[in-house]
Design a protein around this nucleic acid. Structure first.
Lengths: 138, 138
DNA sequence: TCTTCTATATATAAATG
DNA sequence: TCATTTATATATAGAAG
């Protein structure tokens, strides 16, 4: 439902949405867009923070989907709001699991330390036991 | 280095960057931005695909950083180019590992089935070996 | 491949329902 | 809390080097 951008069709009662009367004042090279320029720092007002989160979260998920389709890229995105609600995206034809597997292989970083370490430790422990028994057997 | 937006200061030899002579023609509601509207479908030309990937990858990582700061959100992004190169972002004060741990708790999905299964299988195997030896020992 | 340049398309901050 | 509107700020497609 595109609005006509010209004057209007009658005695406009709407004069809301006044344009800025003062120039933006140039903060710094952050990001943001819209009516006024904003600084990239924590939004203190909780209500505004939530609104901005909701909008930007949608934006990122959309961008993620777009790059995955346009560029045939594998993308995984996980976002938690400050309230702890989860949102995520994963490119088609794969899974977060597979992407993360690839991440580890590629980066050398281990993502699941805890569980992984405890399992690995158990293996080591049992193997040692095993070795001792082999020695005893002889 | 902002350019002056007005005519210029001499006999312009530059007449590149011609504006569109034909209206955009309205494809569909995808996304994209810039000179022409593009459809959200795989870019077949490899060179263009790589260029677009590079630009959009930077865009997403920037957006991820911004939302994490502005909205105090936890964000993890992993991107692989179609050539297999890895790029990632993780919000400050946390780690991908921690984010993924939270993801699993929150979504109920297990991300590292494979690895876990293989490690668990190894443990079982070794334990069995172990048991057999114990029996032999007696 | 990377950078710069710019016209255009989008994203989004604020204001308002 | 969410949807709409609108002015602005950004992102980025395409062109060129």
């Amino acid at each position: 439902i595109p609005q006509s951008h010209h004057a209007g069709t009658g005695p406009q009662s709407a004069r809301r949405n006044q344009p800025f009367l003062t120039p933006p004042e140039e903060e710094e090279g952050g990001g943001g867009m819209g009516r006024g320029k904003i600084e990239i720092k924590r939004i203190e007002n909780q209500s505004n923070r939530q609104v901005t989160f909701s909008k930007r979260k949608n934006g990122i998920l959309k961008k993620a989907k777009e790059i995955s389709v346009l560029c045939d890229a594998e993308v995984g995105v996980v976002v938690f709001s400050s309230a702890g609600k989860l949102y995520d995206f994963c490119s088609p034809r794969t899974s977060l699991s597979r992407i993360l597997e690839k991440y580890q292989t590629n980066s050398g970083k281990i993502l699941w330390d805890e569980k992984h370490k405890s399992l690995s430790a158990e293996i080591d422990r049992i193997k040692k036991e095993n070795d001792n028994m082999q020695i005893e057997l002889r």
